[in-house]
Design a protein around this nucleic acid. Structure first.
Length: 976
RNA sequence: AACCCCUUAGCCCAAUCGGCAGAGGCACUUGUCUUAGAAACAAGAUAGUGUAAGUUCGAAUCUUACAGGGGCUACCA
């Protein structure tokens, strides 16, 4: 009888659940290890085989670390707020909480059947009020803090207020809005409540702000920069436009330097760190003010235009100034003569979508405003242009044009016939293109003529600072993050508005739960969905809009009695709940803190974090930001929350195709070899079509049609299943090759519409969870993207059966013996122990599988069924194939459930020691002979023997030996 | 356009410090078993590492250029 995986796996999963085998408690006597998966958004489609890839890897590490004596925290939860559930709610009217609940149930069922060793008692859901109470709480802390540059950390706003009232803001070195004015303590103390609160908003780490945002009409909400891809929304692919709106923002820029510097501390992939560095985009340069020479409107024309440049040394090469067409100062810099042209250009720019703009990057466009600025270094008049290659959102939205040194400026200058002045003697070919070299000495450059780059920059910066018209400056690409979504299914912001200014509710009033609404759409007046909630108002005595634990039970809040202050109508974005969840797992049911200090100080930070690289500039950046903030507050001990991070590669779909012959009614098959056609012979039936096998398709004109990969085996179509698959194929006919219908193949994204989705449920049923786990790891290196191909899974299945056969013979008799192992058996075992351990330590999951296969093959060859060997083998296997390992472990007489916490086998090098080593002897790099020497033979002795060797002599053909290189236990190379 | 990763047998992949290119799996071939097929078991065949150059006693591994595939960003002044 064969191994009955269905029964055995079922049994152990039930055992683990009943006995809470993987429940974890704080245990200071053991070293801790925290293995975390990026928690999923529970979508309606359930899991496909790509999802568990990372989870399997992390589970293997979790199980391995337990065997190595660590106290392992390995939890799972759900990022359960989000757009899809809400979109579904809009369509069906069903509360997102209900669909979310159902989807989570499916996820849990699917996850459990793969045999993960999660401590389910620590599960979290971001949409649970008990969880988002603390998301809201962290938001409140952000509101109550500012970033002090001297202390280089977040400090309390209340301390700032004290400072203001004592000595104004001049001596405060804090991160704040650009337009923050200076004031004295007297001025501060004279300010009204309204003025003071408005001023403080310029410092708070989260604040409502009127800013240009990515507005997505299709989704009815704003989006963060990382949620917009190629000018359309990441979710749904709707167009995105720029719109000015009042939004909550997070002052993440305050942490820009620490976010960059912290990357040096963590063991993440270079590409991921690069992505974050690029996203933050720190560039060092200088700001320079150019005085405006053409004053058109005394009130509104700016006195100067400030630019940021990384190449202040090129300032003598400036031949024009460009400002972004979106800037508010544009009309006041436009002369009457140019007004028409400028208006037209501004209109044209506004009419173009992000997509148009991106696709026309190469085209030069722009218009002259008619006015000028003065170059402060040579007092030359410089014309001001508008051009859309300058972005309003970066720096000051203005750029000094240096055509000899910058290709974009060169293109612009050439197009508008502006002078191109060389500034370095090393610049080449500037008639045909810009040369951005820093080599050589400056020419045409006033005070820096004859100097070199480094010195010139110093001289110029000094001049700027002395004259008060500029200074050295560090500019970031990173923007403060928009933190509002005009959606329903997210965390309510625990703030209300009084006189248009935000105030927090009391901590004791948390959580502010989502109210019941009738429809999940914006209101008639365009307010977010929460605008529909009755009584969504705060009154200090009885906060309204609250629903108790059952958020969606339907009882509405007491009707608002008219009083109170309106709550914020936006909700928090998807990344709010995911920016701190790893702490909640540590103490998931704490009602007085987001997690106890005891648990945080024990578990500290994540030791291994596994998830997709698509979160590089979203979740992983925001999480680092919140973590640093919590560290500043002294609430968490580590600056970086995830020390080691692995991005698992995406599992792509492998689509199969059938080829329908065009224009081939079934009756017209006269010319085709009839014997090749398998037919149910219903010639006039309701169609069905004629399908040609992939190898023969070029003889016909065909239409490829996606076919469900689940009815294809090794690219051979199951014809009966195909006919049953879709009604219109009932009468299909086939042109076969070698008696088979072979399907075509293509690698694409895994998606329902391509019929290439492979469901893990089916595989667990067909071959078992252990085989699935083993096979997913065996596919290749974890980080690498790879197509899913079920074909090879038989090999993993066979492995499981082979292991079983080491224990039971054909007659189903247990053949395990208590005899002492032989040296050969011990060598096989210890080779595997060494390799499994080394490979797991370096996260080489795929090679461990083949190591186990080799070990089992070798033990099979040795006909080894000795208990002492098999016991260790079972432990080695257990992280990968926990079910069969548990079964065999008890068969060997051990107590059920104890294998997870036993000791990993100890490698003993003694068993691997060989008396001799067979040296390959190469002559000029080519192997010509093999000679055996004792392993401890001295290189000099080996060389002496090799020099005398007959085969070597023969190859020398009388020539001199120049050198003999002996690499102990590797190779000998004779050079002649 | 920049940056990062990848390219080894028909396919998926090993080769950890530069030291005999092959461990494992799929597919394939042959055999054992079988009425037959499948399964199982056993045996076997297959590449010289994308291309070109360089460094080295020695290169899949290091360097440079090019080609192909993938990812990420996209006028960042």
């Amino acid at each position: 009888m064969e191994y009955n995986y269905r029964e055995v796996e079922q049994k152990w999963r039930a055992f683990w659940e009943e006995n809470e085998t993987f429940k974890t408690e704080i245990n200071p006597s053991k070293p801790k290890y925290y293995v975390l998966d990026m928690f999923p958004y529970p979508s309606g489609a359930g899991l496909h085989v790509g999802h568990p890839l990372g989870y399997i890897a992390s589970d293997i590490i979790a199980r391995y670390k337990r065997l190595k004596g660590f106290n392992v925290l390995h939890p799972m939860g759900f990022d359960s707020f989000g757009l899809p559930a809400e979109q579904y709610a809009i369509q069906t009217g069903q509360h997102p909480a209900i669909t979310t609940e159902e989807n989570i149930a499916t996820y849990i069922r699917q996850l459990k059947q793969i045999g993960f060793s999660y401590d389910w008692s620590k599960e979290v859901r971001t949409s649970d009020a008990k969880y988002y109470k603390w998301t809201q709480w962290i938001f409140m802390q952000l509101f109550n803090h500012y970033y002090d540059k001297d202390a280089n950390k977040a400090l309390k706003i209340s301390d700032l207020v004290v400072h203001f009232s004592e000595s104004g803001n001049k001596s405060v070195n804090a991160v704040c809005d650009e337009d923050t004015p200076n004031f004295t303590s007297e001025e501060w103390n004279r300010m009204s409540e309204y003025e003071q609160q408005s001023m403080l908003l310029k410092y708070r780490l989260t604040y409502p702000d009127e800013s240009v945002v990515n507005w997505c009409p299709g989704l009815g909400t704003v989006l963060a920069n990382d949620e917009v891809k190629d000018g359309v929304s990441e979710r749904g692919g709707f167009p995105v436009e720029q719109k000015k709106m009042k939004q909550w923002a997070m002052r993440i820029t305050a942490y820009a330097d620490r976010l960059i510097d912290g990357l040096n501390e963590v063991d993440w992939s270079d590409s991921l760190k690069d992505q974050q560095r690029n996203w933050i985009g720190r560039s060092t340069g200088a700001s320079v003010r150019f005085a405006v020479d053409t004053i058109l409107d005394k009130e509104n024309t700016p006195q100067f235009i400030e630019v940021f440049t990384t190449r202040v040394d090129t300032i003598y090469g400036v031949s024009f100034m460009v400002i972004a067409p979106e800037l508010e100062s544009v009309p006041f810099l436009t002369t009457p003569e140019q007004k028409e042209a400028v208006d037209e250009y501004v209109k044209w720019v506004a009419s173009r979508s992000e997509l148009d703009r991106m696709s026309e990057v190469k085209k030069v466009s722009g218009v002259f405003t008619g006015s000028y600025v003065i170059n402060p270094f040579n007092n030359e008049k410089v014309p001001i242009y508008l051009a859309d290659y300058v972005l309003a959102g970066y720096g000051t939205g203005a750029v000094m044009g240096v055509p000899s040194g910058d290709q974009r400026d060169w293109n612009f200058a050439t197009h508008f016939n502006l002078p191109i002045v060389p500034i370095l003697d090393a610049q080449k070919d500037i008639d045909t293109q810009a040369d951005n070299t820093k080599e050589g000495k400056y020419i045409n450059s006033g005070m820096i003529n004859g100097l070199e780059y480094k010195e010139a920059t110093k001289v110029l910066t000094q001049f700027l600072e002395e004259k008060g018209i500029g200074k050295g400056k560090i500019q970031y690409r990173l923007r403060n993050a928009v933190f509002s979504r005009q959606r329903y299914w997210g965390e309510p912001v625990p703030a209300y508005f009084k006189d248009g200014l935000p105030y927090l509710i009391k901590e004791s009033e948390l959580p502010l739960t989502l109210p019941v609404i009738d429809k999940y759409l914006p209101t008639e007046t365009g307010e977010p969905p929460l605008g529909r909630a009755e009584g969504w108002m705060y009154s200090p005595l009885t906060p309204r809009g609250r629903i108790s634990d059952s958020q969606f039970a339907g009882e509405s809040s007491p009707p608002g009695g008219g009083g109170g202050y309106p709550y914020e109508l936006s909700t928090m974005p998807g990344w709010a709940g995911s920016s701190w969840y790893w702490y909640r797992y540590m103490d998931a049911h704490n009602e007085t803190e987001f997690a106890s200090q005891e648990s945080i100080n024990y578990w500290k930070a994540v030791d291994l974090y596994i998830g997709g690289s698509e979160h590089a500039t979203g979740h992983l950046l925001y999480s680092r930001f919140w973590n640093k903030f919590l560290k500043d507050l002294g609430l968490v001990p580590e600056e970086e929350f995830a020390k080691k991070l692995i991005n698992q590669g995406m599992i792509q779909g492998r689509s199969n195709f059938v080829y329908r012959v065009k224009n081939s009614p079934l009756t017209s098959r006269g010319g085709i070899l009839d014997s090749n056609i398998e037919s149910e012979s219903s010639p006039s039936g309701g169609g069905g079509g004629l399908f040609v096998s992939a190898g023969l398709r070029h003889d016909y004109e065909t239409t490829p049609i996606h076919v469900d990969v689940n009815i294809v085996n090794n690219d051979v179509l199951d014809i009966e299943a195909f006919k049953a698959w879709r009604e219109d194929f009932v009468n299909a006919e086939f042109i076969l090759e070698d008696g088979k219908y072979v399907c075509g193949v293509e690698v694409e994204k895994m998606s329902k519409s391509k019929y290439n989705v492979v469901n893990p449920d089916i595989l667990v049923d067909k071959v078992g969870a252990d085989t699935l786990r083993l096979y997913e790891m065996f596919l290749g290196p974890l980080e690498q993207a790879k197509p899913w191909n079920t074909n090879g899974i038989d090999g993993s299945f066979r492995f499981i059966k082979k292991v079983w056969r080491l224990f039971y013979d054909d007659q189903d008799t247990l053949k395990v013996k208590d005899e002492a192992p032989t040296p050969a058996e011990l060598k096989v075992l210890h080779t595997a122990i060494k390799k499994v351990e080394e490979d797991l330590e370096r996260y080489s999951f795929n090679t461990v599988v083949s190591t186990l296969m080799i070990c089992v093959n070798d033990l099979g060859t040795l006909k080894c069924s000795k208990k002492a060997i098999l016991r260790e083998l079972v432990i080695l296997m257990s992280p990968y194939t926990p079910h069969i390992a548990e079964e065999l472990w008890t068969i060997l007489g051990n107590e059920a459930g104890t294998i997870s916490y036993t000791n990993f086998p100890t490698f003993n090098p003694v068993y691997l020691v060989e008396a001799n080593f067979e040296y390959p002897i190469s002559i000029n790099g080519k192997v010509r002979a093999n000679l055996s020497f004792p392993t401890d033979a001295l290189p000099a002795d080996i060389e002496a023997v090799v020099r005398e060797n007959e085969i070597v002599m023969k190859w020398l053909e009388g020539k001199e030996i120049k050198k003999v290189i002996v690499v102990p236990k590797r190779i000998v190379n004779v050079v002649m």
